[in-house]
Design a protein around this nucleic acid. Structure first.
Length: 348
DNA sequence: CTACAGGTCCGCCATC
DNA sequence: TCGATGGCGGACCTGT
């Protein structure tokens, strides 16, 4: 009796993740995020966390298998009808746009439409799953990401308000949408980061071997984000900032760019983003430098120069302050995880 | 580690 | 009267 209660309590601390696997064209669509949460559980347990995720993959139709072109048939033990609320994260993994356009998932749309929104903390989609959310009316007024070409015809049947095709994933309020299949992993890592912090998310990313977590919402505005929902000034300045990142960017210059006084620019900017202009620029510089470190072989000095992070010493200090890791260690981490991948997955 | 210079942030008050 | 905006000055922060 006692142990039962204890077990129940242990269970109740888990964050319930329900993944709707709408089709099996790409297993990664639902398997990717599921693996992220499972790996997160292992790491969290190892680190002494008592909570984590309970993950349930459900099918749209009870008893119907999900087919994969390689001949794999996947049977989910539960379907959407069995989902018990509340749910911490409801993730719609869709990848068969033809079937969606042919109206094959009406049951899912209806179910989504009727679901008690008060009892779902976060709703997410991978790939064209965003269109399921749109069809169910969950994206009204929201910004969304999907890699699918958003034709006029689609706009009629799947009313998304604003598609951001440049981001791996986008968050707008409690709605999270991601681009192509692998972005589902980015999204899941973003959720883990949101729940348990960046370090845990990075550990999960490394556990998934070579996959180093990419900055989420907006490719280069990276993790500047809870922030991002109403950041109009930051939006307006986005491309200008990225073009001039290697130059001195003081408040007066940014204010002049949008024809505002420095005082007012600063005040409005903080109100919209939660960050002062200087702090925002610094974070942006770090995000862009991270990308260079991950994706190029440029010298640290050249990266520091390009990103306006002063010199090597200055960049090192800034990295330590933001990421608690030096630029060279950061690059090393990326390289060594590639090495681990080859050793673990191929040689053994 | 310290001193210094320059930049940033923010409260306060005036103006629109 | 109220909210948005702008100027000023001082405390604080950061890089050299």
């Amino acid at each position: 009796m006692k142990t039962d209660t204890a077990q129940k309590e242990a269970r109740s601390t888990k964050r319930k993740v329900v993944i709707v696997a709408m089709s099996g064209n790409m297993l990664l669509d639902f398997a990717g995020p599921a693996d992220v949460f499972h790996q997160a559980n292992k790491i969290l347990a190892h680190k002494g966390f008592k909570d984590g995720y309970s993950v349930e993959i459900v099918s749209p139709i009870a008893g119907a298998p999900i087919h994969h072109a390689t001949g794999l048939e996947i049977y989910c033990t539960h379907s959407i009808k069995d989902v018990k609320l509340p749910v911490d994260l409801l993730l719609i993994a869709g990848n068969d746009m033809q079937a969606m356009e042919a109206g094959r998932f009406a049951d899912v749309y209806n179910w989504l439409r009727r679901i008690n929104k008060q009892k779902v903390k976060r709703v997410a989609s991978v790939c064209v799953g965003a269109f399921a959310l749109a069809r169910a009316g969950l994206l009204n007024g929201k910004k969304a990401t999907t890699h699918w070409e958003y034709s006029e015809q689609l706009q009629h049947s799947f009313p998304l308000v604003k598609v951001d095709a440049n981001a791996f994933f986008t968050r707008d309020g409690y709605i999270y949408t991601s681009g192509g299949v692998s972005s589902g992993i980015d999204l899941a890592l973003g959720i883990v980061e949101e729940d348990f912090g960046r370090n845990i998310a990075l550990l999960v990313a490394r556990k998934l071997v070579f996959y180093l977590k990419r900055p989420g919402y907006q490719v280069q505005f990276g993790s500047l984000l809870p922030v991002y929902e109403s950041a109009n000034l930051a939006e307006r300045l986005r491309s200008w900032l990225l073009e001039h990142l290697h130059e001195p960017l003081d408040v007066a210059r940014m204010a002049a760019e949008v024809n505002m006084s420095t005082r007012n620019f600063s005040r409005v900017f903080i109100k919209q983003t939660g960050l002062s202009p200087a702090k925002f620029i610094e974070k942006l510089r770090v995000e862009v430098a991270r990308k260079y470190l991950e994706e190029t072989a440029l010298s640290l000095e050249a990266i520091a120069e390009q990103c306006g992070l002063g010199g090597l010493v200055s960049m090192r200090r800034t990295f330590l302050r933001h990421l608690m890791i030096t630029p060279s260690d950061y690059r090393q981490a990326f390289r060594s995880s590639l090495k681990d991948f080859q050793l673990d997955e191929y040689i053994s």
